[in-house]
Structures are given as C-alpha cells and as structure tokens.
Design a protein around this nucleic acid. Structure first.
Lengths: 177, 177
DNA sequence: TGAAAGAATATGAATTATCATGTTTTCACC
DNA sequence: GGTGAAAACATGATAATTCATATTCTTTCA
C-alpha cells in the first residue's frame, strides 16, 4: 500500500499551513515542469538555428532510423499522425526529407532524410547532446542514470506501446524488421 | 503479448544494428515521453468528466492557492499569459472561477475559485492522487521519491524562476503576502 | 509634479493543431 | 476470387495557440 509519510490532508478549502501544495509535489506536474524547463531552454537554441521545434523532433527521430513509416514516426515523436503528415509536407518543401511509398505495402509511406536534412540533424543532435551533458553534470551523472532508468520504465508502462498492447483484443503490433 | 510474425518485412535504409538510438536515451526525450505517457492517461479521465485539460490545470493551481495573479498563475501552470487570460474567460463563463482586481495595484487581476470550481477541483485532485499512486506503486515508492527529488532539482535549475533570476538585472519576484 | 519607463492584463490577426472523415490499399475468410 | 473489415495516410473544417501590440495602471526621478 502507499504510505504517504507526508501530512495526509483531507479536502481543505484554503491551502495555507506549512504545506508545499498539491501541484508542486504531484508527479505528473513535476514531469511536465521538468520537461518544459529543459525543453524551453533547448528549443531556444533550435529556433536560433531557424528550425521549428516539431521539425527538430522529426529530424532527430529520422537520424536514429530512416525510412520509418508515418504512423511509427508519429508515435515516436509523440505527435498525431495528421499533424505529422503536415509537418512532413513542410519539411519536404524545405528539402529536409523525402517520402517514398513502400513497395510491398503501398499504403505505407516511408520518410527519409535528404542530404541537407541529415547534416542539419547531425548538427542539432550535437547541440542537444551538449545541452544534455550540462544538465547531467549539474544533477550528477549517477542520479541522471537513475533518472533515465525510471523514466524509461514509466514510458514502458504507460507509453503508446503499453496503451496499444493493453487493449482486450491484443492487436499485435506487427513490427517491421 | 502475442508475437504474430507477418512476413511483411521490408528493408529500409541500413539502420544501426545493435544500437539503442539517440532519441531513446536522450534526457529531454525521456522527460517529454514520460510526461506525455502519464498525462495522456490522466487527461482521458479529466475529459471524461467534461473538463478540458487547461482548465484542470488552473483548477489544480488555484486549489493550492487562490487569489494568484494572472502572470503568476500562468508561470505555475506552464502556459503563456495571453492564453491563460482566455482560459480564465471560459472558466468564468462556466462559473468555475471569478476575477477580482487587486485593490493595492489595480493592474493586477486575482483569480479565485467559485464554490463550484472548488468542488470540481477537489474531486479531480482526488482522482489525480489516485492515478499518481498507481504509478508510484509500479515504480516503487522509493524510486518515486528519488525521481521527484531529481525532477524538482531540474525545475529549480532550469524552470521559469531560474530563467528569470538568471538575467543580468535580477528582478526579484516581489511576492504579495 | 509630471513625463517616461515599466508592469500587468487584454485583444485580435495569423498561425497551428485537432477531429472527423475521405481515399487507397491490403487482409481475412468464406 | 470476391467482399467486408481494417490499416495507412491525406485532407479540410473547426478550434486552440501564439505573437505582436494595445490599454490601463504604477513607479521612478528629474
């Protein structure tokens, strides 16, 4: 069972005592706020390069693995499929990516980086790593390792794959490759 | 966990073999993805109650402390001031909050919960705590405690207050009593 | 004391995101 | 082998968000 060793509170109308408040100790909030803090900082660098945030995300995802299909990529990049379709449009316009339809299943559209896209991705990933390194040092590499582990666990348990596999009629993620 | 192997394999571009990829080990991504995972789940409950996500956030923030000014509240809720103004409009429409202008400084607008808003906030906070409890149990309460600590540290170092205080002429947040 | 600078909030046009649905292609199965 | 169901993307109308700026009030200090 859960042992909240803090002051257990009932639904108090005014929040006043020596308490820290719900929000600031709520896991979901802490995750959102930490994410926001760190991203806000880095996104400033991305924009300074003339790149939009959603574009950066796709560049990073594709740098990891090119030729992903739109649906896959959307899940990885934490965005909706229809939005990704539009972002890919823009990126194709700017010659950062190209689409190619899958020959074995012509419903599928696979996305690749262009030369230009690949170069930009590499540069931004370098910046990202540098930014990350600064933070990891601040919070100590050991703690960072633990942090990453727990986060990965949460993603495993509650992320898109978990949610999909959860459902009654297991729809079998037919993973490519 | 069924592994139905369909023969639909297709070779994309040579992807890295035994590597884990940049994205999936990148701190910023892990934070965003964990946050997204957990929030997506909870937000479904919020919407099931007929409440919009941004409204829930404001309810929670105000339940912690009523009478916050718009700017303050926006920073806490991780949203832009102009957006918050509009959300408050809607919430006022629904009789969840009321505005009252500060008598000492009439530029300031302080936001309060209505009776209805307070009740709704309390109910949702209860649900939030329950959802949080489930996750904490999964990842073990000890790890959760550590996690929260590290997240709080990151927020401290990189959050809005840090960014504001960072600037040359530290503008000292003048807190109203 | 009053003019300029700065704070706090509001507003509206322009951009983005979301939702439901359309189109094309493949799958399952009788 | 033909048919209905489902998958993968695209599209377009609607709704939400952002960005720049307007408005109102306060503070500073010459």
């Amino acid at each position: 069972m859960t042992v909240t060793k803090r002051a257990s509170d009932l639904v108090a109308v005014p929040a006043k005592p020596a308490e820290q408040g719900f929000v600031r100790t709520y896991l979901h909030y802490l995750l959102a706020a930490a994410s926001d803090a760190v991203l806000t900082e880095f996104h400033a660098l991305v924009r300074a390069r003339g790149v939009r945030v959603p574009e950066w995300r796709i560049l990073a995802c594709l740098a990891d693995e090119e030729g992903q299909m739109v649906t896959q990529l959307a899940a990885l990049a934490l965005m909706e499929q229809s939005r990704l379709t539009k972002i890919i449009d823009q990126m194709a316009e700017k010659d950062l990516v190209t689409r190619r339809s899958d020959q074995r299943d012509r419903r599928r559209v696979r996305v690749y980086l262009t030369k230009k896209g690949r170069k930009l991705a590499a540069e931004l990933i370098a910046e990202a790593r540098a930014h990350e390194a600064g933070i990891i040092e601040q919070i100590s590499p050991d703690q960072a390792e633990i942090l990453k582990g727990v986060l990965a666990r949460i993603i495993d348990l509650h992320g898109p794959e978990a949610r999909a596999g959860d459902r009654p009629s297991a729809p079998t993620i037919d993973e490519e490759r």
